[in-house]
Simulated assay, not measured.
Amino acid sequence: MTQEINLKSEITATQTGLRLDQALAGLFPDYSRTRIKEWILSGAITIDGITVDKPREKVFETQQIEVTATIEEEVRAKAQNIALNIIYEDDHILVVNKQAGLVVHPGAGNADGTLMNALLHHCPDIEHVPRAGIVHRLDKDTTGLMVVAKTVEAQTHLVAALQARDIVREYEAIVLGTMTAGGTVDEPIERHATRRTQMAVIHSGRPSVTHYRVSEKFRAHTRLRLRLESGRTHQIRVHMAYIGHELVGDPVYGGRPRPPKSASPEFFELLKGFKRQALHAVRLELAHPFTCEIMTWHAPIPDDMVELTKALRVDTELHPIVYL
Protein backbone atom coordinates (compact mmCIF):
# COMPACT_ATOMS: atom_id res chain seq x y z
CA MET A 1 0.00 0.00 0.00
CA THR A 2 1.07 3.56 -0.63
CA GLN A 3 0.61 6.61 1.53
CA GLU A 4 0.40 10.22 0.40
CA ILE A 5 2.24 12.57 2.73
CA ASN A 6 2.42 16.34 2.91
CA LEU A 7 4.85 17.92 5.35
CA LYS A 8 5.46 21.62 5.96
CA SER A 9 8.00 23.40 8.12
CA GLU A 10 10.22 26.46 8.35
CA ILE A 11 14.00 26.74 8.47
CA THR A 12 15.14 27.97 11.87
CA ALA A 13 17.97 30.33 12.71
CA THR A 14 20.15 27.48 13.96
CA GLN A 15 19.76 25.68 10.62
CA THR A 16 20.89 28.63 8.51
CA GLY A 17 23.76 27.59 6.26
CA LEU A 18 23.12 23.86 6.55
CA ARG A 19 22.71 21.62 3.52
CA LEU A 20 19.09 20.91 2.61
CA ASP A 21 19.34 17.20 3.44
CA GLN A 22 20.86 17.98 6.85
CA ALA A 23 18.19 20.55 7.66
CA LEU A 24 15.36 18.22 6.62
CA ALA A 25 16.74 15.45 8.81
CA GLY A 26 16.31 17.81 11.76
CA LEU A 27 12.88 19.04 10.71
CA PHE A 28 11.46 15.59 9.97
CA PRO A 29 13.26 13.13 12.31
CA ASP A 30 10.66 10.40 11.72
CA TYR A 31 12.11 9.80 8.24
CA SER A 32 15.52 8.39 7.38
CA ARG A 33 18.20 10.43 5.63
CA THR A 34 18.07 7.99 2.74
CA ARG A 35 14.36 8.63 2.25
CA ILE A 36 14.84 12.40 2.57
CA LYS A 37 17.55 12.35 -0.07
CA GLU A 38 15.31 10.32 -2.38
CA TRP A 39 12.61 12.94 -1.94
CA ILE A 40 15.00 15.73 -2.83
CA LEU A 41 16.35 13.98 -5.91
CA SER A 42 12.85 13.11 -7.13
CA GLY A 43 11.65 16.72 -6.93
CA ALA A 44 9.32 16.20 -3.97
CA ILE A 45 10.77 19.14 -1.99
CA THR A 46 10.05 22.83 -2.48
CA ILE A 47 11.67 25.85 -0.83
CA ASP A 48 9.41 28.90 -0.87
CA GLY A 49 7.37 27.20 -3.57
CA ILE A 50 10.35 26.40 -5.84
CA THR A 51 11.35 22.77 -6.44
CA VAL A 52 14.89 21.98 -5.30
CA ASP A 53 16.59 18.73 -6.31
CA LYS A 54 20.09 19.20 -4.90
CA PRO A 55 20.76 17.74 -1.41
CA ARG A 56 23.70 20.15 -0.93
CA GLU A 57 21.56 23.27 -1.48
CA LYS A 58 22.13 25.73 1.40
CA VAL A 59 19.10 26.81 3.43
CA PHE A 60 18.37 30.00 5.35
CA GLU A 61 16.15 31.16 8.19
CA THR A 62 12.40 31.62 7.49
CA GLN A 63 12.47 29.64 4.23
CA GLN A 64 9.30 27.57 3.88
CA ILE A 65 9.81 23.86 3.26
CA GLU A 66 7.11 21.59 1.81
CA VAL A 67 7.28 17.86 1.08
CA THR A 68 4.73 16.23 -1.21
CA ALA A 69 5.55 12.58 -1.69
CA THR A 70 4.23 9.05 -1.89
CA ILE A 71 5.75 6.35 0.28
CA GLU A 72 5.22 2.65 0.65
CA GLU A 73 3.74 1.86 4.03
CA GLU A 74 6.09 -0.31 6.03
CA VAL A 75 4.90 -3.87 6.45
CA ARG A 76 5.25 -5.06 10.02
CA ALA A 77 7.67 -7.97 10.09
CA LYS A 78 6.47 -11.20 11.68
CA ALA A 79 8.41 -13.62 13.81
CA GLN A 80 9.63 -16.73 12.00
CA ASN A 81 11.52 -19.75 13.28
CA ILE A 82 14.63 -19.42 11.13
CA ALA A 83 17.90 -20.98 12.32
CA LEU A 84 20.57 -18.50 13.35
CA ASN A 85 24.22 -19.11 14.11
CA ILE A 86 24.51 -17.02 17.29
CA ILE A 87 28.09 -16.89 18.54
CA TYR A 88 27.53 -14.50 21.46
CA GLU A 89 24.53 -13.24 23.41
CA ASP A 90 23.80 -11.41 26.65
CA ASP A 91 21.03 -9.10 27.89
CA HIS A 92 22.18 -6.21 25.68
CA ILE A 93 23.58 -7.54 22.39
CA LEU A 94 23.93 -10.64 20.29
CA VAL A 95 26.39 -11.43 17.51
CA VAL A 96 25.41 -13.67 14.61
CA ASN A 97 27.45 -15.37 11.92
CA LYS A 98 25.11 -14.76 8.96
CA GLN A 99 24.81 -17.45 6.33
CA ALA A 100 24.80 -16.83 2.58
CA GLY A 101 21.35 -16.30 1.10
CA LEU A 102 19.85 -14.67 4.19
CA VAL A 103 18.46 -11.18 3.55
CA VAL A 104 18.80 -8.81 6.50
CA HIS A 105 15.59 -6.73 6.20
CA PRO A 106 12.23 -7.47 4.58
CA GLY A 107 11.80 -5.58 1.34
CA ALA A 108 10.74 -5.84 -2.28
CA GLY A 109 10.90 -9.49 -3.27
CA ASN A 110 11.74 -10.56 0.31
CA ALA A 111 8.63 -10.00 2.39
CA ASP A 112 9.76 -12.55 4.98
CA GLY A 113 12.39 -15.19 5.62
CA THR A 114 14.90 -12.53 6.68
CA LEU A 115 17.28 -12.02 9.56
CA MET A 116 14.78 -9.57 11.06
CA ASN A 117 12.05 -12.22 11.05
CA ALA A 118 14.44 -14.66 12.72
CA LEU A 119 15.42 -12.14 15.41
CA LEU A 120 11.78 -11.43 16.26
CA HIS A 121 11.27 -15.14 16.87
CA HIS A 122 14.46 -15.65 18.86
CA CYS A 123 14.00 -12.55 21.01
CA PRO A 124 10.36 -11.32 20.93
CA ASP A 125 11.10 -8.18 23.01
CA ILE A 126 13.37 -6.95 20.23
CA GLU A 127 10.24 -5.74 18.40
CA HIS A 128 10.43 -2.65 20.63
CA VAL A 129 13.86 -1.76 19.22
CA PRO A 130 13.96 0.08 15.85
CA ARG A 131 14.77 -2.26 12.94
CA ALA A 132 14.67 -5.18 15.42
CA GLY A 133 18.02 -4.03 16.79
CA ILE A 134 19.94 -4.34 13.52
CA VAL A 135 22.87 -1.91 13.61
CA HIS A 136 24.58 -2.61 10.28
CA ARG A 137 23.89 -4.77 7.25
CA LEU A 138 25.52 -7.44 5.16
CA ASP A 139 24.44 -8.13 1.60
CA LYS A 140 22.25 -11.20 1.04
CA ASP A 141 25.12 -13.41 -0.13
CA THR A 142 27.86 -11.96 2.06
CA THR A 143 28.54 -14.16 5.07
CA GLY A 144 29.90 -13.35 8.50
CA LEU A 145 29.58 -11.31 11.65
CA MET A 146 26.84 -8.85 12.55
CA VAL A 147 26.06 -7.26 15.91
CA VAL A 148 22.44 -6.78 16.95
CA ALA A 149 21.21 -4.61 19.84
CA LYS A 150 18.56 -6.09 22.12
CA THR A 151 17.63 -2.76 23.72
CA VAL A 152 17.11 0.78 22.47
CA GLU A 153 19.94 1.99 24.71
CA ALA A 154 22.36 -0.57 23.29
CA GLN A 155 21.35 0.30 19.74
CA THR A 156 21.82 4.03 20.33
CA HIS A 157 25.31 3.39 21.70
CA LEU A 158 26.32 1.04 18.89
CA VAL A 159 25.02 3.30 16.12
CA ALA A 160 27.01 6.20 17.60
CA ALA A 161 30.11 3.98 17.82
CA LEU A 162 29.66 2.90 14.21
CA GLN A 163 29.39 6.51 13.05
CA ALA A 164 32.47 7.41 15.08
CA ARG A 165 34.35 4.51 13.42
CA ASP A 166 34.89 2.86 16.79
CA ILE A 167 33.61 -0.51 15.58
CA VAL A 168 36.19 -2.59 13.70
CA ARG A 169 34.83 -4.66 10.80
CA GLU A 170 37.25 -6.82 8.84
CA TYR A 171 36.46 -8.92 5.80
CA GLU A 172 38.07 -11.72 3.79
CA ALA A 173 37.65 -11.55 0.02
CA ILE A 174 38.97 -13.26 -3.09
CA VAL A 175 39.33 -10.95 -6.08
CA LEU A 176 40.27 -11.22 -9.72
CA GLY A 177 43.84 -10.38 -10.69
CA THR A 178 47.15 -10.62 -8.86
CA MET A 179 47.66 -7.63 -6.57
CA THR A 180 51.22 -6.78 -5.58
CA ALA A 181 50.51 -4.75 -2.42
CA GLY A 182 47.78 -3.44 -0.18
CA GLY A 183 46.37 0.03 -0.22
CA THR A 184 43.33 2.23 0.36
CA VAL A 185 40.40 3.13 -1.84
CA ASP A 186 39.09 6.56 -0.85
CA GLU A 187 36.30 7.22 -3.32
CA PRO A 188 32.73 8.47 -2.71
CA ILE A 189 29.85 6.10 -3.38
CA GLU A 190 26.30 6.87 -4.42
CA ARG A 191 23.41 5.05 -6.07
CA HIS A 192 23.98 4.50 -9.78
CA ALA A 193 22.31 7.18 -11.90
CA THR A 194 20.40 4.72 -14.13
CA ARG A 195 20.77 1.24 -12.56
CA ARG A 196 18.99 2.06 -9.32
CA THR A 197 19.66 -1.29 -7.62
CA GLN A 198 23.40 -0.74 -7.98
CA MET A 199 25.92 1.60 -6.39
CA ALA A 200 28.84 3.35 -8.08
CA VAL A 201 31.80 5.61 -7.44
CA ILE A 202 30.35 9.09 -8.01
CA HIS A 203 32.30 12.18 -7.03
CA SER A 204 29.25 13.86 -5.51
CA GLY A 205 28.51 10.77 -3.42
CA ARG A 206 29.08 10.01 0.26
CA PRO A 207 32.67 9.66 1.51
CA SER A 208 33.71 5.99 1.51
CA VAL A 209 37.04 4.47 2.58
CA THR A 210 38.18 0.84 2.27
CA HIS A 211 41.61 -0.36 3.40
CA TYR A 212 42.96 -3.64 2.06
CA ARG A 213 46.06 -5.79 2.39
CA VAL A 214 47.22 -8.86 0.51
CA SER A 215 46.90 -12.13 2.45
CA GLU A 216 47.78 -14.56 -0.33
CA LYS A 217 48.64 -14.34 -4.03
CA PHE A 218 47.56 -16.84 -6.65
CA ARG A 219 48.24 -17.12 -10.35
CA ALA A 220 45.38 -14.88 -11.40
CA HIS A 221 43.58 -14.08 -8.14
CA THR A 222 44.34 -12.55 -4.74
CA ARG A 223 43.02 -13.20 -1.24
CA LEU A 224 42.54 -9.95 0.67
CA ARG A 225 41.85 -8.78 4.20
CA LEU A 226 39.82 -5.57 4.15
CA ARG A 227 38.75 -3.04 6.77
CA LEU A 228 35.95 -0.51 6.43
CA GLU A 229 35.99 3.05 7.71
CA SER A 230 32.53 3.77 6.29
CA GLY A 231 29.69 1.38 5.62
CA ARG A 232 28.05 2.20 2.32
CA THR A 233 25.83 -0.24 0.49
CA HIS A 234 27.98 -2.69 -1.55
CA GLN A 235 31.08 -0.68 -0.55
CA ILE A 236 33.76 -3.39 -0.84
CA ARG A 237 32.24 -4.77 -4.03
CA VAL A 238 32.08 -1.32 -5.65
CA HIS A 239 35.55 -0.22 -4.52
CA MET A 240 37.23 -3.42 -5.68
CA ALA A 241 35.49 -3.26 -9.05
CA TYR A 242 36.52 0.40 -9.33
CA ILE A 243 40.22 -0.49 -9.07
CA GLY A 244 39.85 -3.38 -11.50
CA HIS A 245 39.82 -6.27 -9.01
CA GLU A 246 36.23 -7.48 -8.89
CA LEU A 247 35.20 -10.07 -6.31
CA VAL A 248 35.05 -13.64 -7.55
CA GLY A 249 31.44 -14.68 -8.11
CA ASP A 250 29.97 -11.17 -7.76
CA PRO A 251 26.76 -11.38 -9.82
CA VAL A 252 26.37 -7.60 -10.05
CA TYR A 253 29.83 -6.04 -10.28
CA GLY A 254 32.00 -9.02 -11.26
CA GLY A 255 30.99 -9.98 -14.77
CA ARG A 256 31.63 -13.42 -16.27
CA PRO A 257 34.16 -15.84 -14.68
CA ARG A 258 37.62 -15.34 -16.13
CA PRO A 259 39.70 -18.49 -15.56
CA PRO A 260 43.45 -18.13 -16.08
CA LYS A 261 45.09 -19.59 -19.17
CA SER A 262 45.44 -23.40 -19.18
CA ALA A 263 43.18 -23.77 -16.15
CA SER A 264 41.95 -27.31 -15.57
CA PRO A 265 38.31 -28.08 -16.47
CA GLU A 266 37.62 -28.81 -12.78
CA PHE A 267 38.97 -25.42 -11.73
CA PHE A 268 36.99 -23.65 -14.44
CA GLU A 269 33.79 -25.39 -13.32
CA LEU A 270 34.45 -24.37 -9.71
CA LEU A 271 34.87 -20.72 -10.73
CA LYS A 272 31.80 -20.84 -12.95
CA GLY A 273 29.77 -22.45 -10.18
CA PHE A 274 30.72 -19.90 -7.52
CA LYS A 275 27.45 -17.95 -7.61
CA ARG A 276 27.98 -15.41 -4.83
CA GLN A 277 30.53 -12.73 -4.11
CA ALA A 278 33.51 -14.25 -2.29
CA LEU A 279 33.18 -11.98 0.73
CA HIS A 280 33.05 -12.84 4.42
CA ALA A 281 32.88 -10.60 7.50
CA VAL A 282 35.60 -12.39 9.45
CA ARG A 283 36.30 -10.15 12.45
CA LEU A 284 34.25 -7.78 14.59
CA GLU A 285 35.55 -5.68 17.48
CA LEU A 286 33.63 -3.19 19.61
CA ALA A 287 33.21 -1.77 23.09
CA HIS A 288 30.28 -3.43 24.83
CA PRO A 289 27.48 -0.83 25.14
CA PHE A 290 26.89 -1.61 28.83
CA THR A 291 30.22 -2.77 30.29
CA CYS A 292 32.50 -0.84 27.87
CA GLU A 293 34.67 -3.98 27.65
CA ILE A 294 36.47 -4.34 24.32
CA MET A 295 35.15 -7.53 22.74
CA THR A 296 36.37 -9.33 19.62
CA TRP A 297 34.82 -12.15 17.61
CA HIS A 298 36.08 -14.17 14.65
CA ALA A 299 33.97 -16.19 12.20
CA PRO A 300 35.54 -19.16 10.40
CA ILE A 301 35.86 -18.84 6.63
CA PRO A 302 32.81 -20.56 5.07
CA ASP A 303 33.27 -23.87 3.28
CA ASP A 304 32.73 -22.53 -0.23
CA MET A 305 35.51 -19.96 0.16
CA VAL A 306 37.79 -22.58 1.76
CA GLU A 307 37.29 -24.89 -1.24
CA LEU A 308 37.87 -22.01 -3.65
CA THR A 309 41.12 -21.11 -1.87
CA LYS A 310 42.33 -24.72 -2.03
CA ALA A 311 41.61 -24.84 -5.77
CA LEU A 312 43.44 -21.55 -6.32
CA ARG A 313 46.49 -22.94 -4.51
CA VAL A 314 46.48 -26.08 -6.65
CA ASP A 315 46.18 -24.00 -9.82
CA THR A 316 49.09 -21.83 -8.71
CA GLU A 317 51.24 -24.87 -7.91
CA LEU A 318 50.56 -26.24 -11.39
CA HIS A 319 51.34 -22.88 -12.99
CA PRO A 320 53.83 -21.03 -10.75
CA ILE A 321 53.81 -17.23 -10.73
CA VAL A 322 56.82 -15.88 -12.59
CA TYR A 323 58.08 -12.49 -11.35
CA LEU A 324 60.14 -10.54 -13.89
Rank of each mutant, 00 (worst) to 15 (best):
H288L: 05
M199V: 02
N6L: 04
E246K: 13
F274E: 05
Q64S: 10
Q155L: 12
T178I: 10
K37F: 12
G255C: 08
V75G: 12
A44H: 15
T296A: 09
L318R: 14
A23Q: 09
V129G: 01
L270Q: 14
A25V: 06
Q64D: 06
H221G: 04
V104L: 00
A77I: 03
V248R: 15
F60C: 08
V103Q: 12
F267M: 08
N117H: 01
K217G: 01
Y88P: 01
T2L: 06
E127D: 11
H105A: 01
F290R: 11
R232N: 07
E269A: 14
R35F: 08
I243R: 03
G107L: 12
G26C: 10
T197N: 02
D53P: 00
A23R: 07
V95D: 03
A79V: 14
T178N: 02
K150R: 11
Q99H: 06
W39R: 09
R33Q: 08
D90M: 07
V185F: 07
H245L: 14
K150F: 11
Q15F: 06
L27D: 02
Q63Y: 02
H280D: 04
I11M: 11
R256P: 00
E57T: 12
L308F: 00
D125K: 10
T233D: 13
R35C: 04
I243G: 05
A299Q: 07
N110G: 11
P188E: 05
G107F: 05
Q99S: 06
